[in-house]
Amino acid sequence: MRFTSCCGGAGAKTLVLVGKAGNGKSATGNTIIGRRVFESKRSLAGVTSTCQLETATLSNGQIINVIDTPGLFDSSVEPRLLATEIAQCIKMAKDGIHGVLLVLSIGNRFSEEEASAFASLCQIFGHEIADYMIVVFAHGDLLEDNQCLEDFWGPNCPQLLTDIMAMCGKRAVVFDNMTKDEDKISRQRKELLSLVEAVVKNNGGKSYVNYLFEALNMSEMDLIDQTSEVTCSEKSHEGKKFHIKYEEQFEQLIKMVELRLGECIMRLEKQLAEERVARLEVELKAQAAQTKSKEEMIEMKERLERAEELSKKLEEKFKNAENQSKEKASETIWSRMGCIIM
């Protein structure tokens, strides 16, 4: 179920960068913000280790909040750490998300791990989160001049990626984070933000929040109300209690996320196990068919050898019979000739 909160058209927009470690999330965030605020470098491993929020005011007055995340749903990371970072992301975007930027790399082959991450994201935040998703293809510098995504992928686009693109409404942009061309950078940012505006408009002008956001916000509001009722002399003491209570509430949020994450992991493990069993069954059937084929070939070869052997025997028998016939005919002729001579 999706809960929503209103956001004005001229209000701040919050964007969350998600994707596999090393795909170029931080570099994309720097391009959006317009300056280097996220640590970024070419690496197969991820550079970002924790969620980071940065804000920029664009030339048109638009305020942009960008949340960079580590490699969420990385199978090598402990579920507790993943849950903590997801909860931290929710905390940073507590007023709602206006766009989830799924960053993929043109330079890397789309993997089942990325497809599983997308599925986990939908299961934790709700499938409606796909209505706010935009696919960003980083490393656009790898495309040749005037080459578009359709030309790059061609007919070989992985089916899993095609399915994800369809779920995201085919919203996609290419980002060249290596370019120094300010006009190109501006065009990329403008194209992305126009998609964000379209996403918000398509969702009734509202940002995305769900029960996880609601749980955190309600806890914070309750604590603020309780604190506002105390006297000035009590505020210092109550402030400490507020902080402790808020940390307890945040811990509850982490546990909620961890629970959902555990369910996702179990579901994905079950799915992977079923796929392995299905592949094994196909392999066994293929082996059985191959074995049967080999047996049939051996049987056919043996039958052919038996037929050739029988043919040779018949031919030899025919020749022997023919020779015997000739010998008998010759004896008959000589016997007749002997009678004539006598």
Rank of each mutant, 00 (worst) to 15 (best):
R187G: 10
L44I: 14
S236D: 08
E85H: 12
R276E: 06
T179E: 12
K301M: 15
T291P: 00
V103C: 06
G19T: 00
K41Y: 09
V174Y: 03
L304E: 13
S330P: 03
L104N: 06
L193A: 04
L212R: 12
D176G: 07
N217R: 14
Q159S: 00
K180Q: 15
L223D: 12
I97V: 15
R189Q: 14
M178K: 13
E229P: 01
S105T: 05
R306P: 11
T227E: 10
K184V: 05
Y208R: 03
E234I: 03
F152T: 04
G239P: 04
D68R: 08
A87F: 13
I90H: 06
P79I: 10
S116C: 01
M342E: 10
Q159Y: 01
A93C: 09
F110R: 01
L58D: 02
R171Y: 05
R276F: 05
R42F: 07
S76V: 04
N108I: 05
A172N: 03
N202E: 15
S194K: 13
A93R: 07
E54I: 02
E263D: 02
H243Q: 09
R279H: 00
K190N: 15
I106T: 04
V173T: 02
N203Q: 09
E197D: 14
E309L: 14
K319C: 14
K41D: 04
A115S: 02
A166I: 01
M337G: 01
A45S: 08
I244K: 11
G204R: 05
C157Q: 03
E327W: 04
F137L: 11
Q226P: 03
F118W: 08
L192E: 06
T162M: 02
T55M: 12
K240P: 00
V277I: 08
C264W: 09
L160H: 00
L216D: 07
E331M: 12
N320A: 15
I298K: 07
A56S: 11
I67L: 08
V200S: 12
K190Q: 13
E331Y: 07
T231C: 11
W334Y: 11
V196R: 08
R189N: 09
G169K: 06
V136G: 05
S40W: 04
L272V: 00
K326T: 14
I90D: 09
G11E: 15
M256V: 04
T50C: 06
A198I: 03
E214C: 03
S40H: 05
F213T: 00
K245T: 02
K326F: 09
V66Y: 08
E315F: 07
G9L: 11
E214I: 08
R35L: 13
Q249P: 00
S116L: 04
E315Y: 06
F318I: 15
G11M: 14
L142H: 05
I64F: 06
G154Q: 09
M300P: 01
A45Q: 14
R42N: 06
N146H: 14
C7Q: 12
C264I: 03
A273D: 02
M1L: 12
E144S: 11
S186I: 05
F125L: 11
W153I: 01
T57K: 13
E128Q: 07
T31W: 09
S40G: 02
I224C: 10
